[in-house]
Amino acid sequence: MIAIAAAAISLVALAASLIALVPAFDSARSGASQAETAKKESERKGLLEVTAVSARFTSELNGVETTDGTTKKATGLNGPAVDISVRNRGSGSAVITKVTAYVTRSELLETCGGTGGDLGIAAHYAIEIPLSSKPPFTRATTDEVRFDVKSGENDRFSVTIGPDPKEAGKAPWVGVVTIRLHDADGSDIDIGPIALVSAGDDEFFYPSRFSWKIEPESSGCMKGNATLVSEVMRIPGITASKEFSALHRALRPYR
């Protein structure tokens, strides 16, 4: 009887031990599951692809207006912008943290007409191109960038690029850039080359609706401009802004 009682006590103790192990096993299994989930989440990455690119003027820029040595703020200014449409084909979010422009050409067009006095207007851009720098060089956005594209989604954003307002003159500016999107995971996407032109501030040479107005006072300076613009349009794979293409057409009589 004593042996039977001892055996029963042992079985009860064993059962109690096994019951006590159940929460510990569940806890370990839950921890392993959480670790596996965390591992899978960490492996989820975005996969951005560019679906469309176009360039045109925007009329939503801020800038400065200078007259008789006095400077004040200006709004609603025209300037070149690049529209970029992207799609995220990855399993996780894609976050663009930086946008840079690799500049291969940057120069002012010629003008030989009057300037209409001392009034000068210059716009501020997200990426400002210093005219004193000789291409090629790279410039980044002046403000912090965080553009999040969720998995499976399409999105669109715009970046403005133009001459540094401290150096911009009255003549239109021409630039050729390749835009690089920097993803938070270290991957980059290059877009370009893209041909851009600013409106300038010359009363005898300026964009007008879907073309450019070239007054007789400026016509004598257009041959060099026609050569420059034609050279840019012959760059392999070039994407020209609407205003740049219009300028190319307007300058045909001077080539």
Rank of each mutant, 00 (worst) to 15 (best):
T142K: 15
V159C: 06
H124L: 09
S158I: 09
S132Q: 12
W173K: 06
L119S: 09
T160Q: 02
V149S: 00
G113M: 02
G120P: 05
L109T: 04
K150E: 14
T138S: 15
G175Y: 01
A122Q: 08
P165N: 12
K150T: 09
P165K: 02
E167T: 06
E110F: 14
K150F: 07
A171Q: 06
T142A: 14
E107G: 02
N154A: 11
W173S: 07
P136D: 08
T115W: 06
A123G: 01
V176E: 03
E107W: 07
P136V: 12
D155G: 03
T115Q: 13
L131I: 08
S133K: 08
W173N: 10
R139W: 11
V149N: 01
E110V: 04
S132G: 12
K150D: 06
V103C: 15
D118A: 15
D118H: 13
S158C: 08
I161P: 03
P135G: 08
V145H: 02
R105I: 12
L109A: 08
S158G: 06
P135T: 04
F137Q: 05
K150H: 12
S132R: 09
S133L: 12
G114D: 14
E153I: 13
A122L: 08
I121P: 00
F147Q: 10
A126C: 10
D148Q: 02
D118P: 03
V176Y: 00
P135I: 07
A126F: 04
D164Q: 11
D164E: 11
A122I: 06
G175H: 05
V149C: 00
P163F: 07
W173Y: 14
T141A: 14
S132T: 13
F157D: 04
G116P: 00
G169R: 03
P163H: 02
A122W: 14
T111M: 04
F147V: 15
K134I: 09
R156T: 08
T141K: 13
L119H: 08
T160N: 04
L119K: 07
G169T: 08
I127K: 05
I127M: 10
P130L: 10
Y125L: 06
V159E: 04
R146F: 06
A168C: 11
L109I: 03
E167Q: 12
R105A: 13
K134A: 15
E144T: 09
G113D: 05
P130N: 14
K166E: 10
T104N: 05
L109Y: 01
T115C: 12
G120L: 14
N154Y: 05
A140I: 11
S132V: 14
